[in-house]
């Protein structure tokens, strides 16, 4: 059974149709990518999945259950985590606190636990702090724990955002242009990191402009143009697809 299934999803803003009758499925356990020219509606798809927008029509199922009507925080608790195209860390919280905050949905401390620092709460805090340290190490940021997120170099901020997303033990990780603004060395590290995340059992779904990266890491590619799916398949098949070539070469802002 598919982990994520979009069935005939349409999203219109007033008269503008950003996503049109989109249907696709994502199986558990791999790395999939969605590509498309600027303005193709990729980010809108992420926003639909995470509940920022409600679909105008169609349905989205995750892990066998509908996401209809769920707020973003509930969807996150179901096991979908994400990063943002324009990094949205908690800028003036430490890297460690950022990751610990990412664990929020999996923590049990109530308001009274927080107020009274009950033994239960303290044990949980210790566990979560430990787990957050592990995650920082996982993304090669073990020494950045005390810095404000805002003071980290750009590439580190991208990785910190991934660590924060992973803190909730998601089933599905959505990466919104994770390589944007990275230099070639950082991109290589990112590719390795994405592979490690897949190996840890998390399904990865990414939006990317960088064709090289997409073709390198993903096992399956969906191509979007003007809000519609125009191709789908293995990277090689997609690369040869005529409609894809036309969509990219047919306009000035083509592939990066």
């Amino acid at each position: 059974m598919a982990l994520l299934a979009l069935d005939n999803v349409t999203k219109a803003f007033g008269g503008l149709v950003a996503v049109k009758e989109l249907t696709f499925e994502l199986d558990a356990g791999g790395i999939a990518a969605m590509i498309g020219p600027n303005g193709a509606g990729k980010s809108t798809v992420f926003n639909l999945i995470t509940g920022i927008y409600a679909p105008s029509s169609g349905s989205i199922d995750f892990d066998g259950r509908s996401l209809r009507g769920l707020r973003t925080n509930r969807i996150a608790a179901r096991g979908i985590a994400r990063t943002f195209q324009n990094i949205r860390l908690f800028a003036f919280m430490s890297a460690l606190d950022n990751v610990m905050t990412g664990r929020h949905a999996r923590m049990g401390a109530s308001m009274f636990d927080s107020l009274l620092h009950t033994p239960r709460q303290r044990a949980e805090e210790r566990r979560v702090r430990e787990r957050a340290r592990e995650l920082l190490k996982f993304v090669d940021l073990e020494r950045a724990g005390a810095s404000y997120a805002r003071n980290l170099p750009y590439g580190s901020q991208r990785r910190l955002e991934i660590a924060r997303a992973l803190a909730s033990d998601p089933k599905l990780l959505l990466l919104d242009e994770p390589a944007a603004g990275m230099n070639p060395r950082e991109k290589d590290e990112l590719i390795a990191l994405i592979g490690r995340i897949r190996d840890s059992g998390v399904t990865v779904f990414l939006i990317e402009h960088d064709m090289n990266l997409v073709m390198n890491v993903s096992e399956r590619v969906t191509v979007l143009d003007h809000g519609e799916k125009i191709a789908e398949g293995s990277p090689d098949a997609v690369r040869r697809d005529e409609r894809v070539i036309e969509a990219y070469l047919g306009r000035a802002d083509g592939a990066a």
Binding site: T50, T72, A81, F84, R88, F90, M93, T101, A105, S168
Partner: peptide
């Protein structure tokens, strides 16, 4: 703190 810093991102943390 997370809400104060970035309410939308906070929601994505399950808050």
């Amino acid at each position: 703190m997370a809400i104060r810093e970035d309410e939308l991102a906070a929601r994505h943390m399950g808050i």
